[in-house]
């Protein structure tokens, strides 16, 4: 799968996650958000930048960790990215889907 944006081909896996974080731009994030039916506000961007920062440091993410981070409460996280907040926000942020070892 790929996303073509302003002539650039962005590689996605079959679930729509970026396979190469270095291809991410703000416009890519906005395009994925639009597909997910989310209009990005400053509050969304604050979460997305936090996730990307953690990802760059190889730090595994979880709902409770994010809830304790002072970036967003878990309730607000659900309001911003309804139903599956970590999955959807990760997709928009261009980082891998949360996964287990198998």
């Amino acid at each position: 799968m790929e996303l073509v944006l302003a002539g650039n081909q962005i590689q996605l896996n079959d679930q729509g996650y970026l396979t190469d974080f270095s291809q991410w731009t703000k416009e890519v994030g906005e395009a994925i958000a639009q597909q997910e039916g989310i209009a990005l506000t400053d509050a969304h961007w604050k979460v997305i930048h936090y996730l990307q920062d953690q990802h760059k440091q190889d730090i595994p993410l979880s709902i409770r960790k994010i809830g304790k981070s002072n970036v967003v409460s878990i309730k607000e996280f659900y309001d911003l990215f309804p139903t599956g907040p970590l999955k959807i926000s990760s997709k928009i942020a261009g980082i891998p889907k949360p996964a287990s070892c198998i």
């Binding site: 979880s62 709902i63 970590l86 999955k87 889907k97 949360p98 996964a99 287990s100 070892c101 198998i102």
Partner: peptide
Amino acid sequence: TPLEGAFTKPKATEAL
């Protein structure tokens, strides 16, 4: 599970 399913990796999902 908080994850998508019991298996989250492509090879394990296919095999298990």
